[in-house]
Design a protein around this nucleic acid. Sequence first.
DNA 1: TTGAAAGCGCTAACAA
DNA 2: TTGTTAGCGCTTTCAA
Lengths: 351, 351
Amino acid sequence: MGPRRTRRPTIIDVAERAGVSKSTAARALTGSSNITEETRDRVVKAAEAVGYERNHLAVGMRSGRSGMLGLVIPDITNPFWADVARGAQDRAVKAGASLLVFSSDWNPEAEAAHLRTLRRARVDGAVVNPVSDSFEDLDRFGLPCVFIGSSAERFPDVSSVGSDIAQAVRVGLDHLVSRGHVTPALILGPKSRLARARFLRAVHEHCVERDVDPAVLAIEDGEYTVEGGREAMKRLLAQPRVGHLAVFAANDMMALGAMMAVRDAGLDCPRDVSILGFDGIPSGEFAWPGLTTVAKPGRDIGERAIECLFDEIDHKPEHRRVYMPCRLLERGSLADLSAAAPKRMAGAGRI
Amino acid sequence: MGPRRTRRPTIIDVAERAGVSKSTAARALTGSSNITEETRDRVVKAAEAVGYERNHLAVGMRSGRSGMLGLVIPDITNPFWADVARGAQDRAVKAGASLLVFSSDWNPEAEAAHLRTLRRARVDGAVVNPVSDSFEDLDRFGLPCVFIGSSAERFPDVSSVGSDIAQAVRVGLDHLVSRGHVTPALILGPKSRLARARFLRAVHEHCVERDVDPAVLAIEDGEYTVEGGREAMKRLLAQPRVGHLAVFAANDMMALGAMMAVRDAGLDCPRDVSILGFDGIPSGEFAWPGLTTVAKPGRDIGERAIECLFDEIDHKPEHRRVYMPCRLLERGSLADLSAAAPKRMAGAGRI
DNA sequence: TTGAAAGCGCTAACAA
DNA sequence: TTGTTAGCGCTTTCAA
């Protein structure tokens, strides 16, 4: 690029050209009301003529509002978080703000460093998926802040936005039941994770409502990875069972891994095994069969988080805890047993 | 977050506490050499004590360097671009800079708007995947700038970083040949796209080297989407052929679509049809079979682009055109015909 | 080695 | 309605 490194025009250049004072020019350009239509015109024309462009650094310095927002997520490469970032981005742009994006890699130190950078950059606020356990780093942030995700529950006095796990689990289980899978096995994340507990609690509540003893559900744990799901499914398949096996995995990657394990065992999905995922990552679309899943509204979450952040910045802390609904994506990994066994009632589990 | 909205400490607070002047404090904190070890110590301690944090807005204003960089890509939700963004991010963070990320959605107007925003934000420079045809908007940017991608070729005097298409095609074709597929069919993008021409040229060169007449290669066009690939493959399958069909698709999405078409036709990949993709998107890993592909080094490209940008900013325009090598990801969508027909020579195409 | 003072570009309070 | 003035927090001459 041939960067024409000539000095960039300031408001003074505009003022001079329009034959008014600095402040009048500023008023005209910021859309203040105390100004003649005629002078405004003249100033605007002058601004265009010299190619004036407001210096946001200076504005931020004077007004205390930099017009920049921070976003700290685990990894922009992860499709869910990319979705969140996209939503946040669009919402910020819509409001004329810019987004500083950072990936923490689930590393509390990186997170702390990024928050420090954001503070120095004088962002007006930040949306964060907190990985740090300690309130320390996060409290120290000292700026308007909105959290994303389930781990945000550990911080009761920070606004947060996340997916509605309870609703998601209900949608998933309802769908499974409608296909005739009344007592699916579960593939869950490690016991240490908060998300696991929330998922499991929702399952239990749903079971109780349907008069199913949660204890009959087979459960296997694993890391939230393809390999974790594969191993868990292998163990599940090793258990004695009668007929069709249905599995609800707490995460699409695990579900995809489970699918591999089914193939490894010489079985067929969905003929022999039905698999339901949770997340809605695009990869699920291209698996064979396509992975039916409960999709988290990543983009909406990002958008909503930015909206909450604006409220936070404007001292309007109305909604402090937002749970966004998830929706079912039917893509073919579930067998339909409902026709084969019509009106099958709860309790007649097949595992 | 309980934002302790007390005034944030400035360098004056530090100076007072350390019993020195503003400028001495500044010198101590910026690592200037003209200062006693003892005073520096005192200032640093004072800074820590009051919790001082440099105001980058003010620094940027004074020094003309905001420490911020812009990144304008088509869509952060697209795995390749997310990869690029991640690389750029990491490299920027490593240098103590922050990244303002924007998605243009392949929309020239959005792109122009984002560039304007970046200029107002006083970023030190930007990495852009240009979608605008006209040099207008981009030239107008007037800041240090590095382009990413093949379309960057339209702008000869701007530094650019991209993948080495010629090398990628060579790697892909070599691999196909090593598996016994000497004259693969091609699924390419629309004729209007520059990338198509580059891809095709590379194929031709490779063919000539191997003494194969490029005219024998079957070619189908389509949009760079799953549906585009599916339709193209359908047409390919409708053509009369003998034996195994091998296809090199110019894009993973198309390759995935092609895979679907193979399944739709009741055929099996890789038994009846071999498919090679180009991009390396994660979805290819979970397709069945896994999609063998030539992967673009998205992360490296992002990293490298930021490095070039730094050079550009520092007026060190050394490398103006960087092509990063791609590598083959073998994941199972290619049949191995080399054993069945050992030492088969070029020209004995099977299409 | 340190301090005083100017000024980056802008906005906001106060005068006119 | 417009102009004048005083900074926002920092770096950077220029003197001391």
